[in-house]
Simulated assay, not measured.
Amino acid sequence: MFHAAHGYQRAPLPEAPESGPTPATGTATAVAPATAGRKSALPTATEPPRPAGRDAWFDNAKYLAIVLVAVAHAWEPVMDGSRATRALYMLVYTFHMPAFILISGYFSRSYTGKPHQLRRLLTGIALPYVVFEVAYSLFARYAGDKPDQPISLLDPYYLTWFLAALFVWRLTTPLWRAIRWPVPVAIGIALLAALTPGIGDDLNLTRVLQFLPFFVLGLCLKPEHFQLVRRREVRLLSLPLLGVAAVFAYWAAPRMSTKWFYRSSSVQEIGDGVPWWSGAVVFLALLACALVLTVAFLAWVPAGRSWMTALGAGTICGYLLHGFLVRAGDYFGLFEENPWLGGPVGLVTVSLFAAAAVTLLCTPPVRRLMRPVTEPEMSWAFRRDVSELGPRR
């Protein structure tokens, strides 16, 4: 359904305006304002980029994905007593971060390492990573009664891995735009990472490399690919696919480790007793399932502007802040002292609370409040580039 174009093109892609990260995440989320409303014809090398408005479809997709991220995180402490909940958890974890990462790659197409892009990379991704890495570590140390919890910028803690990964992926964008077969190369690197134990915890590199194909695929996509996904035929075809995936997840729930979906370990380290060659098959199968379910999810995203559209611009706040609520429930014994949360009524309650909380955290007032951390200007910290002063002179 997705047809990835090669990363080698003679005419440059129109430059997408950049904003803070938007995980799909939780994802926290790292995506620039949407530009899919542009015409598919690319400008010539001499044409300047033409500004375009936000596409409501992308903002809606980001909001719905961050709701799934928050709900899945809320399910994790209470799903052990319910096979159905574990199956839903595995189903959602198959595609929610791949969807966010793919969209992040799509809006990173214009990154070439220009001075203003490097500044945005530092202020919109690196700075939030540092702030929330320290904040989550201190929260675990004092609220979670973990006095030995280290503060290390090289070892992402909890949700901050996505910001570290996005920083690495976006820095390598010019490389992926230059090579002839970027997606197969990225899949090969991801597979090697999955088969290599002991890569280490630095920047959670195992996860960065295993999720890499979705980012590179996003770099190769064009607006017409997303228009194809939004067709009625694709939407109808996605229903039986989702049904089959749900049935398989229910069968696999008691048999399969959730570590396969986190992509933070090699197949040898997961501990299911599988040989490396069958682990490679499982990894590639999950990669294909993630892509198919991502298409199915995107096919049902509403296209028009609605109440959720404005919330899609603030998913970075929802992603980074909802983790404190989930961690607080764990640290203060909310899930252990209330076993009824693992029952049907409790799971519905947890899901509604998580969806409402992350929705509130994505609202414009919260985004304005968090702007000094997630979208700071910091012009005082950078030199003025000569090329930017040229037109004024």
Rank of each mutant, 00 (worst) to 15 (best):
residue 86 R to G: 13
residue 101 I to Y: 01
residue 99 A to Q: 06
residue 182 P to I: 00
residue 281 V to E: 04
residue 326 V to N: 11
residue 119 R to V: 01
residue 205 L to I: 15
residue 137 S to H: 08
residue 118 L to P: 06
residue 101 I to W: 02
residue 258 T to F: 11
residue 297 F to P: 06
residue 146 K to Y: 02
residue 144 G to P: 15
residue 342 G to F: 00
residue 139 F to A: 09
residue 194 A to F: 00
residue 82 S to G: 07
residue 9 Q to L: 14
residue 103 I to D: 02
residue 288 A to H: 03
residue 196 T to L: 12
residue 111 Y to S: 06
residue 290 A to G: 14
residue 264 S to Y: 05
residue 208 V to C: 08
residue 365 P to S: 04
residue 194 A to P: 11
residue 92 V to N: 00
residue 105 G to C: 03
residue 211 F to H: 01
residue 36 A to H: 09
residue 40 S to V: 15
residue 338 N to H: 11
residue 239 L to M: 05
residue 129 Y to G: 04
residue 251 W to L: 11
residue 90 M to F: 14
residue 178 A to Q: 13
residue 164 A to R: 02
residue 83 R to G: 13
residue 215 F to A: 05
residue 66 I to Q: 07
residue 273 G to W: 03
residue 125 I to D: 02
residue 56 A to G: 08
residue 292 V to Y: 13
residue 226 F to R: 11
residue 4 A to R: 05
residue 137 S to M: 08
residue 31 V to E: 03
residue 57 W to V: 11
residue 14 P to H: 01
residue 235 R to C: 04
residue 30 A to S: 12
residue 246 A to R: 04
residue 279 G to S: 01
residue 41 A to Q: 14
residue 389 L to D: 08
residue 44 T to R: 13
residue 60 N to W: 01
residue 302 P to M: 06
residue 98 P to W: 01
residue 325 L to F: 12
residue 335 F to S: 01
residue 204 N to E: 10
residue 35 T to P: 14
residue 248 F to I: 14
residue 241 L to V: 09
residue 252 A to F: 10
residue 205 L to A: 07
residue 235 R to L: 06
residue 280 A to S: 09
residue 163 L to C: 05
residue 195 L to Q: 13
residue 169 W to T: 00
residue 379 S to C: 11
residue 114 K to Q: 06
residue 276 W to P: 14
residue 115 P to L: 02
residue 86 R to E: 07
residue 6 H to S: 14
residue 219 L to W: 03
residue 126 A to G: 06
residue 32 A to R: 13
residue 177 R to K: 12
residue 162 F to K: 08
residue 78 V to K: 08
residue 364 P to W: 07
residue 287 L to R: 05
residue 91 L to T: 02
residue 313 A to D: 03
residue 23 P to L: 14
residue 65 A to S: 11
residue 192 L to E: 01
residue 53 G to H: 11
residue 177 R to H: 04
residue 357 A to F: 08
residue 52 A to N: 04
residue 166 L to H: 09
residue 210 Q to A: 03
residue 115 P to S: 04
residue 171 L to D: 00
residue 320 L to V: 08
residue 362 C to T: 09
residue 324 F to W: 05
residue 106 Y to C: 05
residue 307 W to N: 09
residue 85 T to H: 10
residue 283 F to C: 07
residue 89 Y to F: 15
residue 101 I to C: 02
residue 278 S to Y: 12
residue 127 L to I: 09
residue 1 M to V: 13
residue 24 A to Y: 10
residue 333 G to K: 12
residue 274 V to E: 10
residue 289 C to A: 15
residue 136 Y to T: 08
residue 174 P to T: 01
residue 175 L to A: 08
residue 94 T to H: 06
residue 216 V to G: 00
residue 22 T to A: 15
residue 14 P to W: 00
residue 153 L to K: 10
residue 265 S to H: 13
residue 382 F to Y: 13
residue 379 S to P: 07
residue 53 G to P: 15
residue 340 W to R: 11
residue 278 S to K: 15
residue 189 I to H: 07
residue 95 F to S: 05
residue 167 F to D: 01
residue 384 R to E: 10
residue 285 A to V: 04
residue 192 L to W: 12
residue 50 R to E: 09
residue 17 P to G: 09
residue 75 W to N: 03
residue 233 E to G: 13
residue 375 E to D: 14
residue 6 H to N: 13
residue 342 G to Q: 02
residue 156 P to A: 02
residue 284 L to S: 06
residue 4 A to K: 07
residue 278 S to H: 13
residue 294 T to V: 12
